[in-house]
């Protein structure tokens, strides 16, 4: 997997590309999330539109980071997941943990709505 980071309206967007398989290749991703948390940037969006495949270890990596962010008082939200991944999140009921948005903009906007509320 590869990922790019960008920021929009105070949210940090991680755009992942390729296969989400967990394991050592996600160390860099985990470290980068921690780096942003230390800077006080706790609104995280993971854009999964470029993910072609995910296994249970990859899903575990998302849960682990969700927990890391939540423990720092932040929130990790998912955006643009494909039909297959939506199905897997439903089978494993992980769709009850993650907030899932159809677009990155909607996910980013949801943080602004929470802040304004």
């Amino acid at each position: 997997m590869k990922f790019k980071v960008s920021e929009k309206y105070g949210a940090v967007i991680f755009s992942i590309k390729g296969k989400l398989l967990g394991g050592s290749e996600t160390n860099d991703f985990n470290e980068t999330i921690r780096k942003y948390l230390k800077e006080g940037k706790k609104n995280i969006v993971v854009d999964l539109s470029g993910v072609s495949y995910v296994n249970s270890t990859g899903m575990g990596m998302l849960i682990r980071n969700y927990t890391t962010v939540a423990n720092e008082g932040g929130k990790l939200k998912l955006a643009e997941i494909n039909e297959r991944m939506r199905g897997l999140l439903s089978i494993t009921k992980l769709n009850q943990i993650f907030e899932i948005y159809d677009s990155v903009d909607e996910a980013v906007g949801s943080f602004r709505q929470t802040a304004e509320a």
């Binding site: 249970s56 270890t57 575990g60 939540a70 494993t92």
Partner: peptide, 14 residues
């Protein structure tokens, strides 16, 4: 599983 946000153990279930 969800309450504890556990990682792993989903493979056989899947």
């Amino acid at each position: 599983y969800h309450k504890e946000k556990r990682v792993g153990g989903l493979g056989i279930f899947l």
